Amino acid sequence: MNLKSILIAASVGWATATAAFCADPLTEHQASMTTGARVPQPVGHYYFCKAYPSECGQTASVGKTASLTEVAWHVIKEVNANVNGKITQVTDLEYYGEPELWTYPKSAGDCEDFALMKKKELEARGFQEADLLVTVVKKPDGAGHAILTVRTSEGDFVLDNLDDRVKRWWQTPYRFEKRQSSLDSAQWVLIEQVEKDVPVAAVLN
């Protein structure tokens, strides 16, 4: 099913579906992250772009963020659970013998590999690249972590290899640091709700 089919899907019963992820009133939270200036690109993503140049660069011109229909919501949850289920979590050092390597996982990978695979699979299902953004966060223990943000008409949602549930970004325990630009997937932008940089090696193009 392509995105056009997803977006024109009937919205009957959508109120019931949204109840699953709207437990808290949006009046207390921003539905979408606020992004700011360009920031350094994670070094792992820099080398990923060298290996997959067609996957990095200016995104296609898009209009409004895609509508989050009941069908689209089902696809997002399905992709998150499927990738989490078929890929084994290992560190880059354990699996590749390198401290930082971003790539598409075959059977095992680190957090950023999960995010890249989910992005690829959602694009294949018709979601636009500008709405699928790899995001760097800081976990409560201070460790860096990567997830996939999906931008929708209902706000920003997080796909995480540590949780099969798809949540609104503010429902996670993370401090959000930076993410891919929706205009250029090789560029990264600050997420303004946080103040400190996550300790992830980075370079500028």
Rank of each mutant, 00 (worst) to 15 (best):
A66S: 00
V62S: 01
K86R: 11
S61N: 08
T69D: 07
M33V: 06
Y46L: 13
G44V: 02
I76C: 08
K167H: 04
D92F: 03
V189N: 00
Q41I: 03
F176V: 10
A146I: 10
V90T: 14
L133N: 02
A17P: 03
N84D: 05
E78V: 09
S54M: 13
E70P: 11
V39R: 00
V198K: 05
F157E: 01
V71Y: 07
N82E: 10
S153L: 00
W102L: 05
A17C: 10
A124Q: 13
S67T: 13
N84E: 05
L101T: 11
A15V: 13
W14M: 13
G144H: 14
K4D: 06
V203D: 05
F127M: 06
G109N: 08
E154A: 15
N82M: 11
E98T: 13
T65N: 09
G13K: 01
R165V: 12
E195Y: 14
W73E: 09
S32L: 12
E55A: 05
K64Y: 12
A37D: 14
C56I: 08
D164M: 11
S185M: 04
P40F: 12
Y52D: 01
T35D: 01
T59Y: 10
K139C: 02
D184L: 10
A201R: 09
M1F: 12
E121M: 14
A143S: 15
A201V: 10
E129C: 10
R38Q: 14
V71Q: 04
P199G: 01
C22Q: 14
H45I: 11
A202F: 00
A17Q: 10
T91C: 06
Q58F: 11
I8C: 06
A9T: 06
G142N: 08
Q193G: 05
A186C: 00
E78P: 01
R168H: 05
Q30P: 04
G13M: 03
Y95E: 12
A143C: 06
K196L: 15
K86M: 00
V137P: 02
A130W: 07
I87Q: 00
A19T: 15
G144R: 07
K77S: 07
K178A: 03
V134M: 01
K106T: 12
E195K: 15
L93T: 13
S32M: 04
V166I: 07
L93Y: 07
A9Y: 11
E177D: 14
F127Y: 08
G57V: 07
N82K: 11
I147H: 09
Q171G: 03
L26K: 07
N205D: 11
C22G: 14
N161K: 10
P140S: 00
K50H: 05
E112T: 02
Q89E: 12
N80C: 00
D131V: 04
I191S: 02
S182E: 04
L183T: 06
V150E: 04
D156M: 01
E154T: 13
H145W: 02
D141M: 03
V136Q: 01
A143E: 13
T69Q: 09
Q193H: 12
Q187T: 09
W102K: 07
R165N: 12
Y52E: 13
